[in-house]
Amino acid sequence: MRLLLVEDDDHVAAALSAVLAKHGLSVVHARNGEEALRALLPDAAEPFAVVLLDLGLPDQDGFEVCGRIRKICATPVIMVTARSDVRSRIHGLNLGADDYVVKPYDTGELLARIHAVSRRGAGGGDQPPEDGAVEEPLRLGAVTVELPTRQVSVDGTTVPLTRKEFDLLALLAQRPGVVFRREQIISEVWRTSWEGTGRTLEVHIASLRAKLRMPALIETVRGVGYRLVVPASGQPAAPEPPAS
């Protein structure tokens, strides 16, 4: 697996590259945002499976780099940073990051997340249905989810979602009212059983509630997981404090 490491500290990059190499990963090191973007251009010799993106870069903020990456390719991005506040996590995920790892981290955790997002990125989730079949949109009150085109709208207005946000919403929307266990969601959306992904799930739930502006649409079933609640009579769900 080929991986792009965007890290301005040569010592950190060398140490991490050595560890990843021992686990069969081929690492290309970019020291700043512009180097990373050049390496990810569509005409690059060989595509990357994953980008590990530090936020504290010398030429531009990592958030800006993530946004620019999303304009040129769909390569999965894992933000690796010391910024641990929830606002930064949500901002990074909203920009299109697939995961967010806070320093200091366990190497086993990082490897698990790399393999999880790379499997998902190669999973072909954007493929159209076979045999010319057309899937009907899922209509959930004011929310419409179109699975083939991966489009979501609220009252006719398109709501841009990240890959993982869409996958999470689509999973819940296909069986409204059914409670999905946290472990089940993590397995389906992140393709991993690693329990540390739970915090990432909570951040994605919070981001979905904020973007759709319907906090009660996704209900927390304490101690179990989440379910999608269809608003009565097609009306927007009444706001409730988002609990994760």
Rank of each mutant, 00 (worst) to 15 (best):
W190T: 02
S84K: 03
I78F: 11
A18F: 02
I90N: 12
L95F: 02
P239R: 03
A39Q: 02
V117I: 09
H115Y: 05
R89W: 08
S88W: 04
S193L: 09
A210E: 15
H29N: 13
Y100V: 06
L41T: 14
R120K: 13
S244I: 00
T107R: 05
V152I: 10
D10K: 13
Y105D: 00
I90G: 08
P76A: 08
T220N: 15
T158P: 04
D99R: 06
D155Q: 15
P58E: 11
A173N: 01
V154K: 10
V179E: 01
L52W: 02
R181T: 07
D54T: 03
T192P: 10
A243I: 07
V12Y: 07
G196Y: 11
R213W: 07
R120L: 08
A243D: 14
G124Q: 00
L55K: 09
A21R: 13
D61N: 12
G33K: 07
G225I: 02
L20P: 01
V80K: 11
L111H: 09
E202L: 05
D131L: 15
I218G: 13
K22H: 07
R175C: 09
V117W: 01
A49D: 13
A142M: 13
Q174N: 03
P239S: 09
G56W: 04
T149W: 00
M79G: 05
P239E: 03
V50Y: 08
L161T: 09
L228K: 01
R38M: 06
V80W: 10
A14W: 08
V159C: 05
V102N: 00
C66S: 02
E46H: 11
G121S: 07
E240G: 13
L20T: 01
F63E: 01
R222W: 05
V230A: 12
P215W: 10
P176I: 11
T200D: 04
